[in-house]
Design a protein around this nucleic acid. Structure first.
Length: 593
RNA sequence: GGAGUCGUAGUUCAGUUGGUUAGAACGCCUGACUGUCACUCAGGAGGUCGCGAGUUCGAGUCUCGUCGAUUCCGCCA
């Protein structure tokens, strides 16, 4: 096909280009026919330029009148200054006085109008994703994503990392999430798994002396989805040898600094804040605290303060080893209606309700608990929270962890309802020292909190042979997360590199030698040939892009996302396959009852 | 696996207590219009009310099932 190729893009021309003879290629975005005078907005991914079709050029005008939206055209003409300028678009000072118009392709009427303020449902947008991607707001996300890839590649290259691809077809391991399986034709009845992450490969690369590895890779998990969970997501995967936790932190902090500098022109403060898991839980009631929340909205343990009160609810809880704790809301008007709403919220979390103390501006105290609590205790609670008049304190009592988690949720709810988040901030924080194991009451056994290669901190090695729940659950790991604005962005650990420690972990979670050998034999073998100390992390790229683009969901950071039922509405996958294909694989589909 | 919400014109939605011919806006088509940029104005076409049963004299509306989208819990790093 021969046509006039563009000399400029649709976002490029300015008043300085006046009188230039140029050619543009693009899509008809909008036609405004004033009868005799015809304007066309021509769109490409760079922007929009207005075309002016003058009736004196009859053949051009006749052609232009027949154009529909989304027709692909090539126009040649002169850049002229507009009579009435449009301040809303970058090219708004000029327009093109069109001399030649070629239709490169026609278009059906699109199922929805392609405009920034799109009215179509998500379902329709996904079905016609190619049309949705013509919208600037979606394209812009992909542009940010592309730039971030580029920054990452450059950053790790500069720091001497090797970018190494690991297999997409790998061995299925039943630990962690459910695997996506791929049947083998050559080995009928056997299956590959798609990687949940390249964890095992990257650790093996460390044994190979690769020393610094990075990869931007796809990870697959066949689990039920949520708004911000896709069946395949992208991870910045890295691993380093001869390092401590601090070395890993430094590299990752540098990466975030580089990304924020280049994309947002923001100088992030590094090193990031650090907080242990226990501190996060006790202060914020969650392992991914949102530190953008203004005011002193923290959890205070007031078990000791209310000891010896007349209040039976508190006394029962304290007697059974529980806790009384609360959070403070500063300087907000708390109405009866607010209390009712919050009570409803707390009930959903499995509590009967909560107590509250409203310290009024006039010095009086409003609370359903005044008749049970002495003036002294009420004053001491105020002191414990460092509360002022016009502050409100919400109090929960019960089993310790349950109270903390509920107050954590209440904190987020208050932040939402009273708009306490400073949306301009990027609050990074490392959460460290996670527990290594937890006891599963149902299965009656210990389970790994993180992946099974995470190393225990040296000072807890003494508990690795214990089976006392308290002792085992007290073991802390060389394990860390990066949390940004309440979202977990990255997770990693210093790995176990001594076979005898690894064996203790397997023992703890009840995995026999035979079982371990079957599942990870090759890996355990590898670790007997001189494994260097090493550690790393996996960083969620989709979520980083979502935050950089101000999106709530990761869907629009991905060119072709899937729905919550893991299907793609555009190409209609997954789909059935032919009997021949199944026969080749030796697979039969069992009939549903 | 469980719970909730939604599904009506090409699109986004309205549709009263179950009652005559299912409406609006945008889009689309036709016509008019020389400075629009959400152009304006006049006219027109366009419906398997997701699908399948049931209740009823009568179902877009009520019930059950099913499919799809979506939100949450379980699950998942």
């Amino acid at each position: 096909m021969i046509y006039k190729k563009r000399t400029h893009t649709c976002g490029e021309l300015r008043l300085a280009d006046e009188n230039k003879n140029i050619t543009l290629n693009g899509w008809v975005s909008k036609k405004r026919d004033l009868g005799g005078l015809l304007f066309i907005d021509l769109r490409d991914r760079y922007g929009i330029t207005q075309l002016n079709i003058h009736p004196s050029k009859k053949d051009v005008y006749d052609k232009a009148e027949k154009l529909g939206n989304e027709f692909v055209i090539s126009v040649t003409g002169k850049v002229i200054k507009r009579e009435s300028i449009n301040k809303n678009i970058a090219t708004g000072d000029i327009e093109i006085d069109v001399d030649v118009l070629e239709v490169l392709n026609e278009s059906l009427v699109p199922p929805f109008v392609i405009e920034e303020d799109v009215k179509a449902s998500d379902e329709l947008r996904l079905k016609y994703r190619y049309l949705d991607l013509r919208r600037k707001s979606v394209t812009d996300n992909l542009i940010v994503r592309s730039r971030v890839y580029n920054i990452i590649h450059r950053y790790f290259e500069k720091h001497n990392f090797l970018e190494i691809e690991t297999p997409i077809l790998m061995k299925s391991t039943p630990e962690g999430a459910r695997d996506y399986l791929v049947p083998s034709r050559v080995h009928k009845g056997k299956f590959y798994a798609l990687p949940q992450s390249p964890q095992i490969y990257k650790q093996i690369l460390m044994l190979s002396g690769i020393d610094r590895y990075v990869q931007i890779c796809k990870c697959f998990r066949d689990e039920d989805l949520r708004a911000d969970r896709q069946p395949e997501h992208t991870q910045i995967d890295l691993e380093m040898s001869f390092v401590t936790q601090d070395d890993v932190f430094e590299i990752i902090e540098g990466m975030f600094h580089a990304i924020w500098k280049e994309i947002k022109n923001i100088d992030l403060t590094i090193p990031f804040k650090r907080m242990t898991y226990d501190e996060a839980l006790q202060t914020y009631g969650i392992d991914k605290p949102d530190l953008r929340i203004k005011g002193d909205v923290k959890i205070e343990n007031i078990t000791e303060v209310v000891k010896g009160s007349e209040f039976k609810v508190f006394n029962d809880v304290i007697e059974s080893g529980g806790m009384v704790a609360g959070i403070k809301l500063s300087g907000q008007e708390v109405s009866r209606k607010t209390i009712d709403g919050l009570t409803e919220f707390i009930k959903k979390l499995g509590f009967g309700g909560f107590g509250y103390l409203k310290y009024n501006a006039d010095g009086t105290v409003q609370s359903p608990m005044t008749k049970f609590l002495s003036e002294e205790i009420i004053a001491n609670i105020k002191k414990a929270f460092n509360a002022n008049d016009s502050d409100t304190v919400f109090i929960l009592s019960g089993e310790k962890k349950k109270v903390l988690l509920a107050l954590g949720q209440l904190r987020l709810k208050l932040a939402e309802d009273f708009k306490l988040r400073d949306e301009t901030k990027f609050e990074f924080v490392w959460i460290t020292d996670f527990p290594l194991f937890h006891y599963d009451e149902e299965a009656k056994k210990f389970e790994s909190e993180h992946n099974i290669f995470t190393s225990p901190k040296d000072e807890y090695l003494k508990f690795m042979d214990s089976r006392d729940v308290k002792e085992v659950e007290s073991i802390r790991a060389n394990c860390y997360d990066i949390v940004l604005n309440g979202f977990e962005l990255a997770s990693g650990s210093i790995r176990i590199n001594k076979p005898e420690v690894q064996k203790k972990v397997f023992d703890m979670i009840g995995m026999s030698d035979d079982e371990a050998k079957m599942k990870f034999g090759f890996m355990l073998d590898a670790y007997t040939y001189g494994a260097p100390p090493h550690g790393g992390a996996g960083i969620g790229l989709d979520r980083i892009i979502a935050i950089l683009c101000g999106l709530k969901s990761i869907t629009d950071t991905i060119a072709f996302p899937k729905t919550l039922k893991a299907s793609s509405l555009m190409d209609e996958c997954p789909s059935e396959v032919s009997k021949e294909q199944l026969d080749e694989l030796g697979i039969e589909i069992s009939k549903k009852e």
